[in-house]
Design a protein around this nucleic acid. Structure first.
Lengths: 328, 328
DNA sequence: TCGTTTTGCGCATACGTGTGCACAAATGGA
DNA sequence: TCCATTTGTGCACACGTATGCGCAAAACGA
């Protein structure tokens, strides 16, 4: 068995105590350069590295961050996480990834991660109950992304607002003669999904309009495609607002390839998220976009404040802007 | 400060020793049902959960798995990881995610994770040196995905072979009159990327042909798009084989929208990976596809063997099959 | 009633590291 | 040379849990 070498063994080899090894690695000033150099060379030779588990137990800081998402298969989650993980890694923080899709007992999942004494937790997933998340990660002061605002001194919140952008898009669509709008939801039950719909509903109301049809998807291309076929056959619709970009592309494909509609002439399609692939030439979607990096930087800011021990919670709102493509 | 409750405190509340608490949670038989029930109810009340860090230190098993990838922004990695993470979660294993893209010192990154005494490590990223990975994760018996086969009793390997599928695609393309093939690499330096190219080069050789041009991308849509513009302007090409699907879509867009070529009439495009979005109606790519779930199940199998303490390494090869679309 | 077995639980120790305190050695000043 | 100060290192304990061993109480048979 390939047992791992410990500080005690390195200590023996160097003829010092294990405390000295610890000090050599923690950058303690009260240790001679000569000893440190000698220890480091012996350590390198046996490629010794301090055991982070033991260090965590002792120091009460694990340097672990729980990231709770729906599914990383989704481009939006993928893009956000890729950037966030990079920023965390730079700060010597390691992410533990929790994927809710396909795992029923989400509370159990979060408890598993919480047992590792994660220093921070970021909840992206709208598949978990806010109450559960807040309770389970209480000691980590969870950062809730796009959950209903509440006032709790132990949690930080990141909110998005797309009402202005929605109004802008709707105004354009209405002025070009559209009046029969449909909405395609994502996960119909979640707060953020309802919010997204309400931005557009409110915008329509300003023109004396409301949605004439609604359909329920699950954020996937397939659901967008399938629901669009049903929706567009059933009612006469000249604009579809989708819960995210991927579904919007599914709607576009169904409309143009199955139903022979022209986009945007016969049908306007509006997405939400502003993911990279929505901007590929072949898609060129009109969508509500967020500056994903700035968005994630806010989370990094929350975490840095927590690291510095700054007390007090924070709530930050990010605004969507319209990314004009050729679909509306 | 919201300190976490420990087994010792629960013990005090229940009027027993902390050993008994431990036994209650570990399912030890030598404890009365009455006591266990009582402990569990007190524990629930204070929502106590055993500290996984302390448990790991004591048991020498962390239940953590390091997953080393290039970038989860990439649909291929996203799909693979989503499935794998699900399977791990079901087994009470938690993934620590390492993203190499945008982090220069990949060895340092891996050492960080290794310090957490991960029980298993799966290396997907072709951005790390195999030697580094094998050395750093030695004690975890790393699982190398699509690295050059070596014989080392401490590592398991997952290899892919697309030579037959490549031959099949090339045969079709040649029989429909194509003779001027170009190859667009991904990360030109990696073993797997060279392999992929060689499958096609070998297939071409069987028809007395070889690539007449080559260009270097980075697996991204943008690189596919940009390189295609240069490539197709410079030489007369009637088929492009791409290092992955996403680049292939970039090539298609550049060819059809910038250069006015018709696909597949003027130009055949072949991808590799078989990701979901390659099969969307709007893309419908001809590509070398892998059964991603079966592929990941092999990794789960490796891990299960390691959990059961089965010694000995394993090397498994998966074969690509052709997914016929409308681009070749 | 006594001896034997079973059951339930506490004690002590280990896991590998960090750190306050004490102490020895080295240094410096007079 | 002697005392005061600085510097370098070791000792002991703490972090929270798991577990072998021992022991008392209970259960059981005769």
């Amino acid at each position: 068995m390939n047992k791992r070498i410990t500080s005690k063994e390195i200590a023996k080899l160097a003829g010092v105590s294990s405390s000295t090894i610890s000090r050599a690695f923690s950058g303690d000033a009260r240790i001679s350069d000569r000893t440190r150099k000698r220890i480091m060379s012996i350590a390198d030779e046996h490629d010794y590295r301090p055991n982070a588990i033991a260090r965590s137990l002792n120091s009460q800081r694990s340097q672990l961050v729980a990231l709770v998402v729906n599914s990383i298969e989704n481009p939006c989650e993928g893009q956000q996480l890729q950037y966030l993980v990079q920023r965390l890694q730079e700060r010597e923080l390691l992410p533990i990834l929790l994927c809710c899709a396909g795992y029923d007992d989400r509370a159990h999942l979060m408890r598993m991660a919480s047992a590792y004494q994660v220093d921070h937790a970021v909840i992206f997933s709208d598949m978990v109950s806010m109450a559960d998340a807040v309770q389970i990660f209480r000691t980590a002061r969870p950062i809730m992304v796009s959950f209903e605002p509440i006032s709790d001194p132990n949690i930080s919140q990141l909110i998005v607002d797309g009402s202005k952008a929605a109004a802008e898009v709707v105004a354009k669509a209405v002025s070009s003669g559209r009046s029969r709008f449909a909405y395609l939801t994502g996960r119909n039950s979640s707060w953020i999904d309802k919010q997204r719909k309400s931005w557009f509903a409110d915008a329509l109301a300003q023109h004396g309009l409301s949605f004439v049809a609604e359909s329920h998807g699950d954020y996937s291309y397939e659901s967008g495609f399938k629901e669009a076929v049903v929706l567009l056959r059933r009612s006469s619709i000249d604009a579809v607002v989708c819960g995210n970009d991927v579904m919007a592309i599914g709607v576009r494909d169904a409309a143009t390839r199955v139903l022979g509609r022209k986009v945007p002439e016969d049908l306007a399609i509006i997405g939400q998220d502003g993911v990279n692939l929505a901007m590929w030439e072949c898609n060129d979607l009109t969508t509500l976009a967020l500056d994903i990096n700035a968005y994630m930087d806010t989370i990094v800011g929350f975490i840095e404040d927590q690291v510095l021990g700054k007390d007090g919670t924070a709530t930050v709102t990010h605004e969507y802007t319209v990314r004009w493509g050729s679909t509306c």
